[in-house]
């Protein structure tokens, strides 16, 4: 039998690529699997039982993690913070990015470069001045103080992403909207924003992840337990020297599930947002 060399080569290439991708996927998924597996074990078995599937499923860990970690309150807080911060970032960054991209005003480049420079400063570097500022504004230990700080944290990257997107938007679309009687805000709302949907999806998922997993700034700014985000609940299972691994893993599974769902639901947009920047309109 004559084998077509071209088909063989392409199949071989496909096998190599898929094997590589499967291996990469496994390395990404394995920690999640390990977390799930460990969350079903007990303290007595977690260090002894090396099997992939635990011999006994201890689902009670989830109940304990939920109640001992006070997850009901923290989940709600995290939800409030994530929704508010992401909404705030999308509104402010899209307005700012549109202005930086399409409007002409004095100091435009300086301001934009300042935003870019802000990306270079790691968050812990600004902790002390941020705390002092929030304290002077009377916003320490308030939800709004934390939300405003987190919006500020996410702005630089979001503005940068959206500006790059708006830069590629054809000016003909704007002109057409202007002829139809759109104001500058109207063009932003009816033309720029709908076109930037893939980029906004990227911003939503990146910032949702960032806010959902944030803890250090919350510890700094918030004092009341009732205001703390979900990550605070996980700390209960980590002693200074010892860790209650099964409960911690159950808590981590609870904490990670919503964000995994958000990611899965927006996956298509994210891929589009990352790859389709060149074709706008």
């Amino acid at each position: 039998m004559k084998i077509n060399r071209y088909i063989l080569a392409s199949r071989l290439k496909s096998i190599v690529i898929h094997t590589f991708l499967i291996l990469v996927s496994l390395t990404c998924l394995f920690p999640l699997f390990w977390m799930l597996r460990s969350s079903l074990m007990t303290n007595a078995t977690i260090f002894v039982d090396k099997s992939l599937i635990p011999h006994e499923f201890n689902i009670h860990n989830y109940y304990l993690a939920w109640t001992e970690g006070n997850f009901a309150v923290y989940c709600l807080n995290s939800l409030i913070y994530t929704v508010s911060v992401v909404f705030g970032i999308v509104v402010v960054s899209s307005l700012a990015a549109y202005a930086f991209s399409r409007l002409k005003f004095p100091g435009k480049n300086i301001f934009f470069n300042m935003f870019l420079a802000a990306m270079m400063i790691p968050l812990p570097g600004s902790f002390v001045p941020l705390y002092v500022l929030m304290n002077k504004l009377g916003l320490v230990n308030t939800r709004i103080g934390y939300i405003l700080c987190m919006i500020n944290v996410g702005l630089s990257l979001s503005i940068f992403l959206l500006k790059t997107f708006f830069d590629k938007m054809p000016s003909d679309l704007e002109d057409a909207a202007r002829i139809d009687g759109c104001s500058k805000l109207g063009i932003w709302r009816h033309v720029a924003l709908p076109l930037a949907r893939p980029a906004i999806a990227v911003i939503v998922i990146f910032n949702s992840l960032n806010v959902w997993n944030e803890y250090i700034l919350a510890t700094l700014l918030l004092n009341d337990k009732s205001l703390m985000p979900l990550q605070r609940g996980l700390m209960v299972f980590q002693g200074v020297h010892s860790v209650d691994y099964p409960l911690l893993m159950a808590g981590l599974t609870i904490a990670a599930t919503p964000i995994i769902l958000v990611y899965l639901s927006m996956q298509k947009h994210i891929i589009k947002g990352l790859s389709s920047g060149a074709v706008v309109g």
Binding site: P124, F127, V128, L130, Y131, V132, N135, K136, V140, Y215, I216, T219, L220
Partner: peptide, 12 residues
């Protein structure tokens, strides 16, 4: 995180 908070609270 605690250390950061203490330093920030001291400054304020």
């Amino acid at each position: 995180a605690y250390s950061q908070k203490i330093i920030a609270a001291a400054q304020a």
